[in-house]
């Protein structure tokens, strides 16, 4: 069996509908109803008073990226390039280098995410074998004065902490 097909009667063939005017007035009555209600009482508009009232960001929201770090602050990323390989927008640019602190052999010397090219699909997070990249900063609005400021370097990515507790993040279906 295929999907359920709902047949919707085609309208516009009766005389009343063909005259247009009556239907137009009906439509105008509807829109005026909205207008009048909102004019008298503008407290029930379906709007978010944005910069003053911030939306609550759910844990699963894919915000700006960050690189996670070990307890001692060193970067978790081992420059395996899985995120770069997986990135459909090709916005991740990594340069790998030798790691000397004994945590792994390899680490990113530079790790750039071009947020102007990023499509926030979250594939990098999915791909990461070490949970080294996350999109849990809760930053949903990235602004800048020039293009360069959208190119996040490794230090920018490490600087921001996650906006949620570890338990919430894990529960959030990451």
């Amino acid at each position: 069996m295929g999907a359920k097909v709902k047949t919707i009667a085609r309208r516009g063939s009766t005389l009343q509908e063909r005259i247009f005017l009556i239907e137009i007035f009906k439509g105008m009555a509807t829109t005026f109803g909205h207008f009048w209600r909102n004019l008298l009482d503008n407290s029930k508009l379906y709007v978010r008073h944005y910069p003053e009232v911030k939306p609550e960001i759910p844990v699963r929201w894919r915000g700006r990226h960050r690189l996670t770090s070990h307890e001692d602050g060193s970067v978790k990323c081992v420059a395996c390039f899985m995120c770069q390989t997986n990135c459909p927008a090709q916005c991740i640019q990594i340069q790998a280098g030798e790691r000397l602190d004994g945590k792994a052999e390899k680490m990113p010397v530079s790790f750039n995410i071009d947020l102007l090219e990023c499509i926030y699909c979250g594939y990098c997070v999915e791909a990461c074998p070490l949970d080294a990249i996350r999109m849990d900063t809760g930053i949903y609005s990235v602004t800048g004065k020039d293009r360069e400021s959208f190119n996040m370097g490794i230090d920018d990515l490490l600087a921001k902490q996650g906006a949620f507790t570890e338990e919430d993040y894990k529960k959030g279906g990451a």
Binding site: V78, A79, C80, M82, A104, E105, K106, P129, L130
Partner: peptide
């Protein structure tokens, strides 16, 4: 199994 850091991967 350190494929992520292994050049042979």
């Amino acid at each position: 199994i350190d494929c992520p850091v292994c050049d042979q991967a």
